[in-house]
Simulated scan of single mutants.
Amino acid sequence: MKKLDAKVYCSSCKQKTNHQILYTHSQSSDVKDDFQWHEKHHIAQCLGCDGICFVKQYGSEDMWDIDSGEQVWVDDFTVYPEEPQKVSIKERIEEKMFHRNAKHFKNAPESIQNLYNQIIESFSKGYDILCAAGLRTLIEGICTHLNIKKGYLYDEEGNKLPDDDGKIRKHESLGGKIFELYDKKFIILHQALILQRVIKFGNDALHQMKTPTYYTLKEAVDIVEKVLYDIYELKNHSLLKK
């Protein structure tokens, strides 16, 4: 039998293990659709204890990474029963780990500021999935406000990435739009690369209800705040007027 392409959590072994696939149901977008995605639902068996679990595998054109300078498409795997959180939301709130004050970006559109405020509120209350999904929506909102429609994909060295057929073209995906922000000098390359990671776990939250860690969210909020400042506030800095 075929093995899952990734290790997933086993509730009996209490750790991530290899699993073999017993049964799979697949569905995907049409080849003519603007946005390409696929989803597989597996019944799988742990190769350590023989325990049975349900695994959801999801991938889309927004979900890719750079490996040795090449564009590599990646899938996410969500297992049921899920891996338990090491620290509960209640415990984190009691310890005030999540509290964060929203910043005011006076030159940003009201819709962008309002969405950012809601993201910070979700972060402070420990609503991980809402916060992650909100960050993805905020990035798309920035692109919409700046009339960014599509863009090329780049590797970590700033080289344009070709498609599987070897052609270099602009993509209408959010990943392409983020790199168009870089092309138009709204952000730097490394900000664009980090935002690609942010939309990846934002997609996980939207499509798989997958919860990112507190520290992942904190770092994502940090970089998104920096992007908001660079795009909307920096050009209006008081020192530029003196």
Rank of each mutant, 00 (worst) to 15 (best):
V87N: 09
E91F: 09
K170L: 02
D183N: 13
S122W: 01
E94L: 11
E180I: 07
Y152F: 10
Q208F: 12
K185Q: 15
S124A: 10
R136M: 05
V87E: 14
G126A: 05
L195Q: 06
S173T: 14
N101A: 09
N117Q: 02
P81V: 13
H145L: 00
V79R: 08
I120C: 00
I199P: 03
D163F: 09
I187C: 04
E95A: 15
L146R: 05
V72H: 04
D76E: 07
D155R: 12
L153N: 01
D155K: 13
K106D: 04
H207C: 09
C143I: 03
N107A: 04
I188T: 05
K103Y: 01
I120G: 00
I93F: 10
C131E: 06
W73R: 08
N147W: 02
E121T: 02
N101W: 07
V72I: 06
F77K: 00
I89M: 07
I129D: 10
L153Q: 00
I89Q: 08
I199G: 02
K167Q: 15
K90M: 10
G134M: 01
H171C: 05
H207N: 12
V74N: 05
P84G: 01
H104C: 01
F98Y: 15
H190T: 04
L195W: 04
L193Q: 12
A192S: 04
I187H: 05
E95N: 14
D165M: 11
L195E: 04
I194V: 05
L174V: 03
F98A: 14
D128G: 10
E110N: 12
N101K: 11
A205F: 14
K184S: 14
P109F: 02
P84T: 01
K86Y: 07
V87M: 09
K103D: 00
L130D: 02
E82N: 09
R100T: 05
I142Y: 01
E95K: 14
K150E: 15
L161Y: 02
G202N: 05
K96D: 13
Q85P: 08
N101R: 08
E180T: 12
Y182H: 07
E82H: 10
L153A: 00
L153E: 00
M209A: 14
A108W: 03
Y116C: 03
I129T: 15
R136T: 05
P81W: 12
E180Y: 13
N101H: 09
K184G: 12
V79E: 10
E180D: 15
E121N: 03
Q118R: 00
G126D: 06
I93S: 12
Y152N: 09
